[in-house]
Nucleic acid binder design. Structure first.
Length: 555
RNA sequence: UGCCCGAUAGUAUAACGGUAGUACGACAGACUCUGACUCUGUUUGUCUUGGUUCGAAUCCAGGUCGGGCAACCA
């Protein structure tokens, strides 16, 4: 018997509904994106919630595009959204569009007009806003509010027929101009937009507003639990009012808090700005919190699902530490990614007592966490490359790497001892000389020596060259949106560092886009789609935890 | 200041009137042919004031703080 994890408040509601026989125990959720941008990690939380809930309670989830505003929407986004949901590992029961229901929604509007609960408005946006009053003072009716049913029916038909220009008329619900809830002060149901729609083409010139499309679509589909974010709480009375007056299937809306992540922004508007103003290379730039960005960065679907599970579902605002997302991907990649050696900032190392021209084959374990991952063969020779930071001329006390007189293990090879260095005119080290202990070979070490440190290397003659892109957080500020001024002023200037020539194991030349590796001691990396047979490009997904960096920071 | 939502370690999240626990982080240590992984330990919390109760993080009331709402956006 596995330990039951406690239920979040929505799971609790669903559990109670099932126990009480609500909807005969049926559970149908929906994920309702507007096709006007790419999905991001915040959407992933909603996707995981909606699809996860259905899986958990033997239900289904529809994918429904909320495409009621043709001005901003496009099929490009429809395609990316579908691809991202599938990549995350979810499959919808039906692919639907609010625009599929335009005729039905129109009929709903006619029903309300006939009941005297909707009217055609002549006033402009400004006039309507002014007549709505303020939160502390009630609104005042416009002359149109007292129109007859017949006149409203006629005008609404003519709106549909295209007899009016954009903005000339709207359809409003007749509810309560004195309501303390501003959304109940005769909200707009329809507006005129002579705009081509990505699916209905030029069939319509009037389009329903969110409030008169979303709940109605839920009801038409017989959605049982309609989950949305907190800002829609004030809309719920309206959501319920339309359902009640229309006497249609009673879907219910429940709200949870949206996901916020440190060191990034999550609003579509801001993400779009980063793309359009070229602060990033596109929606799928590996620094973006978009699903496509995370994918290109090397994140796995399972790690994102795990992250969504860990952040939970609640009604309080959450600001999640980016470190938790990183933890989730490390946790998975540690178990699944093969280890390889890559030297990102190379310096030449010559083993003075190693025979010139000799090449040895060394065996390297692919993944110590997974015996089934097997092993590979590496070539070892007299001249190698090691990481520049793994050598210090004047090492401090706890430096367990190479230095004059210091011993260190070359991973999967020999223990070596630092001897001397060669420098250029500027004082930069160009070559390090060291001697190796022949009896210390990995797998058959009888040197009797133990060393504190192990470093990675590649054989100069055998190494392949690769481009490596080191990504870091996009913003310097923990919460750029909350800063004074423009959020873009807080972009991290070092969010991308490109290494044109890193040296890697030659076997990596065969790697394909999307393959993931651990570069030993450096981090997890994935092969970028920019790679060509001539040049492999790696993206750093995330660094390894680095206790030494921390130790250095203390000094 | 009209209405609405919320408040548990640094960040999240449990405890469903009965011992405030877990994860991430931080700190200290063990282990290590990755300063990774793993393991051990430590630290830090119920916004506040009253009330109900044998007993309150939980129920009630007032306050404080945070967030949202007056788009022909969703």
């Amino acid at each position: 018997m596995s330990e039951e994890r406690s239920l979040n408040f929505i799971e609790q509601i669903v559990t109670d509904d099932i126990a009480n026989g609500v909807n005969d125990g049926r559970v149908l959720t929906r994920f309702p994106p507007e096709p006007n941008g790419y999905l991001h990690i915040g959407h992933a939380k909603s996707i995981a919630l909606n699809f996860g809930l259905a899986q958990q309670f033997n239900g289904k989830t529809n994918l429904r595009f909320d495409d009621t505003n043709p001005v901003t929407e496009d099929t490009e986004y429809v395609d990316s959204i579908k691809a991202d949901i599938r990549w995350l590992g979810y499959e919808w029961a039906q692919e639907l569009y609010a625009s599929d229901y335009f005729e039905q929604i129109y009929e709903f509007a006619v029903t309300l007009i006939k009941k005297g609960l909707a009217y055609v408005e002549d006033a402009s946006a400004e006039q309507i806003a002014a007549s709505k009053g303020t939160p502390t003072t009630p609104g005042t009716p416009t002359p149109a509010r007292s129109r007859s049913v017949e006149e409203n029916l006629d005008l609404f038909t003519r709106m549909r027929n295209g007899e009016f220009k954009d903005g000339e008329k709207t359809l409003r619900a007749k509810i309560d101009l004195a309501s303390p809830n501003m959304h109940m002060r005769d909200p707009l149901m329809y507006r005129i937009k002579h705009t081509h729609h990505h699916r209905t083409g030029d069939k319509w010139c009037i389009y329903p507003m969110y409030d008169f499309a979303h709940g109605q679509s839920d009801s038409i589909e017989k959605i049982t639990h309609s989950l949305c974010t907190l800002e829609f709480i004030p809309h719920r009375p309206l959501y319920d009012w339309f359902i009640k007056e229309l006497e249609i299937f009673p879907s219910h809306q429940y709200e949870f808090s949206r996901l916020n992540l440190t060191y990034t922004v999550m609003s579509k508007r801001k993400l779009k700005q980063l793309v359009e103003e070229k602060y990033v290379s596109g929606w799928d730039d590996p620094r973006m919190p978009t699903i496509s960005g995370l994918r290109r960065r090397g994140y796995t679907p399972a790690s994102i699902r795990q992250f969504c599970e860990r952040v939970g579902v609640q009604k309080r605002e959450q600001m999640i530490d980016l470190g938790l997302l990183e933890f989730c991907v490390r946790e998975e990649l540690n178990k699944t990614a093969n280890r390889v050696m890559a030297v990102l900032d190379p310096v030449k190392l010559v083993l003075t007592n190693y025979p010139e021209g000799q090449v040895e084959e060394m065996t390297a374990e692919n993944n110590p966490e997974d015996a089934a991952a097997g092993s590979r063969t590496l070539h070892f020779s007299k001249t190698l490359y090691i990481e520049r930071e793994d050598f210090m001329e004047e090492p401090p006390k706890k430096f367990f790497r190479l230095g004059p007189g210091l011993h260190v293990r070359l991973k999967n090879a020999y223990i070596i001892k630092g001897e001397s260095v060669e420098k250029d005119a500027d004082g930069n080290i160009t070559t390090i000389y060291a001697s190796y202990l022949p009896e210390s070979k990995s797998g058959g070490d009888h040197s009797g020596m133990t060393v504190k440190g192990t470093i990675h290397w590649v054989s100069a003659e055998h190494a392949a060259t690769a481009e490596v892109r080191l990504y870091d957080r996009l913003f310097k500020s923990e919460n750029p949106s909350a800063e004074e001024g423009d959020f873009k002023d807080f972009i991290n200037p070092e969010s991308l560092q490109v290494i044109k020539e890193a040296y890697v194991e030659p076997g990596l030349l065969q790697a394909k886009a999307g393959d993931r590796f651990q570069f030993m001691r450096k981090g997890y990396f994935t092969v970028d789609p920019d790679s060509t047979p001539e040049k492999v490009v790696f993206n750093r997904t995330v660094t390894l935890k680095d206790a030494w960096a921390k130790e250095k920071g203390k000094a």
